[in-house]
């Protein structure tokens, strides 16, 4: 069957299935199982209102449970197993982890990931805050914000192509078509550089892609937070003779600190999962490996599911503090 036709059929089945389920289940509950009439009317109404939330929740809980909660435990289990001949799994304890930590490529991925986690959220948040502050009172500020926000819509793969063009190196005797080498030669560089193959520094050239994408996100949220600062606090500071830098760092930043933390942690999560950029630009060569790409290589190239799962668990472990912190905050807010 043609996939587009299959798609249309899926939409129709999916949508009508969802609507049918919700409508039918509600109807069944109201008219058949606990009808609001007869001798048990009061009890019936109470009971059906107890059941109804679960009808509303069931498909979502099934989806969340099957596609997000169950895999966490399944991956944990897999990380302690080893696949032998004939798809027989045997329990090997921490062997996968031990083996992984002994691998240079894994340690390199871990080191790079930590480097990414330090640089990308800091740089994106700083650029975002700077842009938000600079464009705040500008007449064409909204246009400027749109432009900085735009990379959010661009895929990591698209961004990888865009930045590969920037980093392109051509032989010394012909025109440079990568802007970085063009500038490098204009400002006194001796020979065109293959930027993505220079160990250690190439990590930063990859990070630039994510910073370019994430700055817009930080800017949008911090800009809204800056707008929310009570004017009186700034007025008071102006009257007291504070200069613009003091107003910014002593008055504004402390008041939006909680938002800065939210932005920072959100970008941290995005950074931890970064896969496409490295996969498309270097595929982990020249010491640019990161955990997500290491995991992909282990799972789908080397077909070592034990070690792949073990490295996925390392990513999960790194996400854990933020997960706990988010849940803690959400609970606090619900009260």
């Amino acid at each position: 069957m043609h996939p587009a036709l299959l798609g249309v059929i899926t939409i129709v089945i999916g949508v009508s299935g969802c609507v049918g389920y919700f409508y039918g289940a509600n109807l069944l509950l109201d008219k058949v199982i606990f009808p609001a009439r007869g001798p048990n009317m009061g009890r019936n109404i109470n009971r059906r209102e107890m059941i109804r939330p679960w009808i509303f929740l069931f498909p979502a809980m099934l989806g969340l449970g099957l596609y997000l909660a169950y895999p966490v435990f399944a991956t944990l289990r897999l990380s302690f197993l080893e696949r032998g001949a004939g798809d027989v799994y045997t329990f090997v304890g921490f062997k996968n982890y031990v083996q992984m930590f002994a691998e240079d490529k894994f340690m390199e991925a871990l080191r790079n990931n930590i480097l990414w986690l330090v640089v990308v959220p800091a740089a994106s948040t700083a650029f975002g805050l700077l842009t938000a502050q600079l464009t705040d009172r500008l007449r064409w500020g909204n246009f400027a914000k749109s432009v900085v926000f735009m990379p959010m819509a661009i895929s990591f793969v698209g961004a990888a192509v865009i930045f590969k063009l920037i980093y392109e190196a051509r032989p010394e005797d012909v025109a440079q078509i990568g802007v970085l080498n063009h500038l490098y030669l204009t400002f006194g560089g001796d020979a065109p550089q293959q930027w993505l193959t220079i160990p250690f520094w190439n990590n930063f050239f990859l990070m630039a892609v994510l910073i370019w994408i994430q700055t817009g996100f930080a800017m949008v949220i911090l800009s809204a937070a800056l707008r929310g600062i009570p004017e009186e606090t700034i007025e008071a500071a102006v009257i007291d003779g504070a200069n613009p830098f003091q107003i910014f760092f002593r008055i504004k930043v402390p008041q939006i600190m909680s938002t800065i933390v939210v932005v920072w942690t959100t970008i941290t999560i995005a950074t931890l999962k970064v896969f496409d950029i490295v996969f498309a630009m270097t595929n982990g060569q020249w010491e640019t490996q990161v955990l997500a790409n290491y995991m992909y290589t282990k799972m789908f190239v080397a077909r070592d599911w034990g070690m792949g799962s073990a490295s996925a668990m390392i990513i999960m472990l790194l996400v854990m503090p933020i997960l706990v912190w988010n849940v803690y905050n959400a609970r606090k807010e619900m009260r």
Binding site: M61, V72, I269, F275, G308, A312, A330, R331
Partner: peptide
């Protein structure tokens, strides 16, 4: 409240974990 907290928690679970089991 527990379910809301669970949703908030699942918000950040890396989908890398889901690949093999699924």
């Amino acid at each position: 409240a527990l379910l809301v907290a669970a949703v908030v928690g699942l918000l950040v679970v890396p989908l890398q974990l889901a690949l093999i089991p699924l």
